[in-house]
Nucleic acid binder design. Structure first.
Lengths: 154, 154
DNA sequence: ACGAAAATGAAAATCAATTTCAATACCGAA
DNA sequence: TTCGGTATTGAAATTGATTTTCATTTTCGT
């Protein structure tokens, strides 16, 4: 998988008249090593923690390139921070997001895929990407709230 | 409808120990008068164009209150700008967003509602809100691209 | 009408995203 | 392999939206 991703990225870099650099390789590796949704800041920390030095702006620019060549998908939840997810893991497309703890549960749904296609046809719309996000409270946060309520009196 | 909204907002204001003000009334009216997705900036312009003077920060703070009391829903597309939509219009919940012209087509889908409930049960998740967003290119932008391609040579 | 408490608005602060620019690295051609 | 044009890098500055600050004003129960 990763060999393909590297190949695809370097092909993209070449065909766009750009140059391969050590930093870009480090950033791509760091990104491919994650399986969650990472922000530029997350990646910058991951790289720094691995004792490599790449500037924040470079991480930002490179993630744009990685997204552009189709290896990453840029998504935005309701906090205004862009995050990137690996597109090679394409079975997961949607998210349940806990408003309390921020936990993200990924899921896929055949029913939704079919419904989406129906809608695209209905509105004559060419789909490029899609996100179904359900915000709410996960079980463990609900349980925690119950415990707190039994202790606290307003 | 609007009478209910005003009542609900003033009830909320009172029960939270806050105060009713002229500005809050102006902002709520401006918001209820829109049917699209408006940003704080949009609303501030709408109000200014109506020759009323309310500060930007006040619009921002009041929209947070309106959302808090359930009259508005805060949504974020991929441009990083928060927008508010009227929740009383609850038949429309989802969006087709054109990556070219920014046009937003709203739709609702019974199939998705049912699927959503199934997923909530499956993951033991208490839903507070949800958004299905499909990004792509609308018909008119596709048509326009075709016209441009027939004129332009790379 | 009084006075405590909240609201306002202009300006400043914040924060992520993005751009600038001088120094550096890449890489194809000679 | 060196050369040189071009792209890249990274620190700092900028942008643009959001959020906070704070002095002044307004609200509203008493």
């Amino acid at each position: 998988m990763n060999i393909d991703a590297h190949q695809r990225f370097s092909d993209f870099i070449k065909s766009a008249g750009l140059k391969g650099t050590e930093q870009r390789a480090v950033i791509l590796d760091a990104f491919l090593g994650t399986d969650a949704h990472v922000s530029v800041d997350d990646l910058h920390h991951i790289i720094s923690n691995a004792d490599k030095k790449v500037g924040y702006a470079t991480v930002h620019r490179t993630m744009k390139l990685i997204a552009e060549c189709g290896l990453a998908r840029e998504v935005m939840f309701n906090d205004g921070i862009s995050r990137f997810e690996n597109t090679l893991d394409s079975s997961h497309h949607h998210h349940l997001i806990c408003n309390d703890c921020g936990q993200i549960i990924e899921f896929s749904s055949k029913v939704m895929e079919i419904e989406e296609k129906r809608l695209a046809k209905k509105y004559d719309f060419e789909i490029e990407s899609h996100h179904f996000k359900i915000f709410g409270i996960c079980k463990s946060c609900r349980d925690q709230k119950k415990r707190n309520n039994s202790r606290t009196v307003l």
